[in-house]
């Protein structure tokens, strides 16, 4: 899922201070699961924003809302009336949701309440980790199901660097060395031969490097 975290309330306050009527709108999908921008968090963000603005002598009207998915037109359209009645929208969806909302509502400014951080999963309660970079050319089959691009801090493809120590990364002693994990996993699987050969430079043209990526499928077009 997409993992995000809430922006500091000071930053949100600075963005929203000039408005008298604001809609705070959450998303019921990824950011609900990662406890950053669902219905419950919308309530908290709206309350914090009210208090922060009140301390500056401002008392804007703040309306709350939440839709199932902010990244699909059909759900966004449910918000039409609510959006028409406000000056600005504060979205607690991921960056995809914020942009979808901004595009659909057109004439109203939409602001982000979250920092969208990565594609990942909750590893334990309260800890989310990045596991995929969306490079567009999945090589997980070769690496024992552990991605060197997402999980090696240098995105190395041919083995660990000299900064790997005690199975941890030189960047942060709490962070596993992705390559140590790959090596151990392939060892368990008896597949170390898969990485013995030289892995050629990555073709980054499937990554972000050709601009906004899109998938066009004629078979599902209407």
């Amino acid at each position: 899922m997409i993992v995000a975290e809430q922006k500091p309330i000071q930053e949100i306050k600075t963005m929203m201070a000039k408005y008298q009527k604001i809609l705070v709108v959450g998303c019921g999908t990824c950011v609900t699961v990662c406890m950053a921008g669902g219905e419950k968090e919308v309530g908290i963000i709206a309350s914090c924003l009210r208090m922060a603005l009140k301390l500056e002598g401002k008392e804007p009207e703040i309306i709350e809302g939440c839709i199932q998915r902010q990244c699909e037109w059909e759900f966004i359209d449910e918000l039409k009336e609510k959006v028409e009645g406000v000056e600005a929208v504060l979205s607690s969806a991921c960056g995809v949701g914020v942009q979808a909302l901004a595009e659909r509502v057109g004439n109203k400014p939409v602001y982000p309440a979250l920092n969208t951080t990565f594609m990942g999963m909750p590893k334990e309660h309260g800890l989310w980790v990045e596991n995929c970079r969306g490079c567009g050319n999945c090589g997980l089959g070769k690496f024992g199901g552990i991605c060197p691009i997402a999980r090696c801090s240098k995105e190395l493809l041919n083995g660990p660097c000299g900064g790997s120590q005690n199975g941890k990364c030189e960047v942060n002693k709490e962070m596993d060395c992705g390559w140590q994990l790959i090596y151990e996993r392939l060892n368990v699987l008896g597949q170390l031969d898969q990485i013995e050969d030289i892995i050629l430079p990555e073709d980054w043209s499937t990554d972000r490097d050709k601009g906004q990526r899109r998938i066009l499928r004629e078979d599902v077009k209407i």
């Binding site: 041919n158 083995g159 660990p160 660097c161 000299g162 790997s164 120590q165 005690n166 199975g167 060395c177 390559w179 140590q180 090596y183 060892n187 170390l192 990485i195 013995e196 030289i198």
Partner: peptide, 14 residues
């Protein structure tokens, strides 16, 4: 002097 030598030797061989 790496403490996890096997993975380092893979890189060395390459």
């Amino acid at each position: 002097e790496a403490d996890r030598m096997d993975a380092q030797l893979l890189k060395f061989r390459k």
